[in-house]
Design a protein around this nucleic acid. Structure first.
Lengths: 214, 214
DNA sequence: AATATATCGATAAATTTATATCGATAATTA
DNA sequence: TAATTATCGATATAAATTTATCGATATATT
């Protein structure tokens, strides 16, 4: 991590998208305002925690009624910079890569995958969900020229570090890693990993514990 | 969460799979023993933290050399119950579902997807990665009869809660949710969610912060 | 108009989690 | 064989995070 003036704690930051998800549903139900109490109930949190989390966005609520939904939504999205869509490259057009390019909600999350990359000659030149696939060795050059800031890694574990290096070389500033390895990147590069193993480990351990007690 | 005698903290539990991943690589390099110091260096953690984490498995190391790799690996996998593969149902044979069924490493993580379920009549009866697709309304009955403990949800957000309800009805004890919603399940059911939005939110916020300072 | 109620937001306390300290010990080196 | 070094593991401290308390205030109710 960089020398960032850590203003908001990671646990708080991680909860913010959950609030947005909830608001998305409530907007459809045309709710006008919402209190921290209700949010907490919906998400299984404590009202105090919700209030504290929301305060990082600078928003203020009103006693008795809570927060104006649209205002809160805007404040959260602004804090995560989701209104300001960033272009991204995706490396690895396998099943997971294809799934990600087809995910319809990323535009709401401030992410726009503009190109995919793969080593498989059969895939190069083809399109997945309207996104063209280029050879992997073009990543660095294209990223630099197009000033792409985000790189998504969906290649197998043993190719992931090389892919990260290429992305860094191309000036990519943030890597979203789906490969099951710990990548090494320079301090100033943001690295965020989605680890299925991590999540599954929590589940299997708890399940084992549960089954044991039966 | 249940009334579980919380022995191991969630942060620790979440790090355990990372240790296993590292060991997987080191095993191929035929390393015989490894110290907490080295593990910490590889994963960007503190040696003390690693030692404390590993201690939950009951393993002990030797001064100067550390832990015997195979022993450590076994202890970690045993703690997560990864040696004891559990059958799982997957609901939602879309792109993400397909990607998950094709993921080759789940068998190492104690997970075995045995059947998939979908509402699309065109998909029913077909196979993905050797796994047959059944109609969604069969989930509860089949889960109960086959004593399947794990359900994986990869359906769209608005169908996810219904799917969770069906799984619970079928006696499924642990749900691995990939839909971007907060599911409501009975207290005794384990719920573990993979939230792309959460992870992406951390990334986009940090990136915005970084770009702002340039 | 007065009272009751739900909620906010600031400050304080409690809890959890991470890190530091240090004696003991196995391997290595002099 | 003695001294040195790296590491473990137990205990203690520090830091981060969550939860509690409480006065203030906007809305609803009597």
């Amino acid at each position: 991590m960089s020398q960032e003036i850590k203003q908001v704690s990671l646990p708080t930051l991680r909860r913010l998208p959950r609030y947005i998800q909830l608001l998305k549903r409530l907007r459809r139900e045309e709710v006008a305002s919402i209190s921290a109490t209700i949010i907490a109930n919906e998400l299984g949190l404590e009202p105090i925690q919700v209030r504290k989390d929301l305060s990082v966005t600078g928003i203020t609520g009103k006693p008795k009624t809570g927060f104006i939904l649209e205002e809160l939504n805007a404040a959260l999205r602004d804090f995560l910079n989701w209104g300001n869509t960033q272009d991204a490259f995706l490396a690895g057009a396998g099943a997971l890569g294809v799934a990600l390019t087809g995910y319809p909600n990323f535009k709401d999350y401030g992410l726009n995958i503009i190109s995919a990359f793969d080593n498989n000659p059969k895939k190069i030149g083809t399109k997945i969900h309207g996104i063209e696939i280029f050879p992997v060795d073009k990543i660095a050059d294209l990223a630099a020229r197009m000033k792409v800031n985000i790189g998504i890694i969906t290649v197998p574990a043993d190719a992931a570090q090389e892919m990260a290096d290429i992305m860094v070389e191309g000036g990519i500033k943030a890597i979203w890693n789906f490969a099951p390895v710990q990548l090494k990147v320079p301090e100033e590069v943001i690295l965020e990993s989605v680890s299925l193993a991590q999540s599954l480990g929590v589940l299997t351990h708890k399940l084992a514990f549960l089954l044991e007690r039966e």
